[in-house]
Write a protein that binds this DNA or RNA. Structure first.
Lengths: 230, 230
DNA sequence: ATGGCTATTATGTCTGCACATAATGCGAAG
DNA sequence: CTTCGCATTATGTGCAGACATAATAGCCAT
């Protein structure tokens, strides 16, 4: 007899994987399961809700709970600050600010951030180093409205770390892809032009008033892997 | 006055982002918050638990709840079956089995799956197509012990779909990276050798008895983006 | 037969209570 | 003065009951 909601979750997973409850089939109601397991309905609910969140079950009011047809596995990653990643490997971390200017961003960036086309943003390019060797080339557009006066010294602190520490919790999106190294990226990262780079693109807005905050593209040096348990 | 656990969660996020509750600081106990919000402690608990799971709060018994110092954002992706991705875009899906053999896998693969070095596995290479154009090149090693006799016809159903439908819920890990297209990949995907490809590597084991199931490397055609909301 | 209304039912959420568990810090014993 | 142990306390989990919500199924009227 399972005891505790985690045991119930395990039992349910067991029944799904052994096809006692076949894919696409209806499973007993919370009532019935609570009775069978000798626990309260809330306990069953907690277990089933979690599995529904994980994509293993599909639940609808009145319709009941059924085993998901194609279980969409969800992988989750911790998006860490680069400094933390580097120092966690026992390496020395440094940032170098390569360029800083005030300019109108490319159309795609302005659109994604919901800014008018002519708006000028702070354009920063920097290089993250581990033990002196280049790791990540960062190309960032930053809404100057979020900056205080005087502007923080981004030669000393990475923009990302300043943002994390000083700008309100915000929403955004993130995308991963692969791209060939551009001339500038190849030079900064000390790789051949055209080398395959892992690209992280992040777009952040919101904060207080749904304002645009920043758009950033990180080009990771070859060898970078984004890894997680399923 | 917030009503419902989602409203409480929103209020807590608000207080964190406006620094009413500063980073690293202790927040009031569930008791106190339940009193303030005029709800039961369980309701507060649900909201805070969720935020702790999201990495925004850190909770320890007796020690209380504090705002996370560096909010490690967690991005989660739905790892979909390729067919679903393609048909969701309104394109026609097809798989072509390019090669099939029984051989000893590379050392790295055998190690990751925890198999003895000499063990022979089923080696399958296939190509996933959308509207006839190549999308993903798949290189897979499969433990023959998980297959029934007779073996499914992998020319008709993709290995992944067969596994999802027929092998018990399993654990594993997944990694993303970028790599230059090998000669075989370039040929299959109709791109130039050396082109930057987005690589997904998945390693699956477990099932019933922690047995190795499969190791697979997916090379995505240029243009592929893995995207999610933060 | 068909279309719409209603009763039924499964899940979603909340309450108030209880006990379990873990970590902290203070006090007593050595 | 140090160290062990216990009381305190905040979170984790469970239970029973209640109402809310949504969606189905069946009934009734047309």
């Amino acid at each position: 007899m399972p005891k505790g909601w985690e045991a119930i979750r395990a039992e349910v997973i067991q029944r799904i994987s052994t096809r006692i409850w076949p894919a696409g089939g209806l499973i007993p109601s919370e009532q019935a399961l609570a009775l069978e397991f000798g626990c309260a309905r809330a306990t069953v609910n907690r277990a089933l809700s979690e599995l529904a969140g994980a994509g293993l079950l599909e639940r609808k009011r009145k319709a009941g709970t059924r085993v998901a047809m194609l279980p969409v596995r969800k992988a989750s990653f911790a998006i860490a600050v680069i400094r933390a990643e580097v120092t966690a490997r026992g390496q020395a971390y440094a940032v170098r600010l390569l360029a800083r200017s005030l300019a109108a961003p490319p159309l795609a960036v302005a659109l994604r951030l919901g800014l008018p086309q002519g708006a000028r943003m702070l354009h920063l390019q920097s290089l993250h180093l581990a033990d002196g060797s280049p790791q990540v080339y960062e190309d960032r557009w930053l809404n100057p409205a979020v900056l205080p006066l005087p502007e923080p010294d981004f030669a000393k602190i990475s923009v990302n770390e300043w943002l994390v520490a000083n700008v309100a919790y915000a929403s955004g999106d993130i995308a991963f892809s692969a791209a060939a190294a551009s001339a500038a990226e190849a030079l900064a990262l000390a790789v051949a032009p055209g080398a395959a780079l892992f690209i992280t693109e992040r777009c952040t807005w919101g904060g207080g008033a749904d304002a645009a905050i920043t758009w950033v593209r990180l080009a990771h040096a070859p060898g970078y892997r984004l890894q997680t348990l399923l």
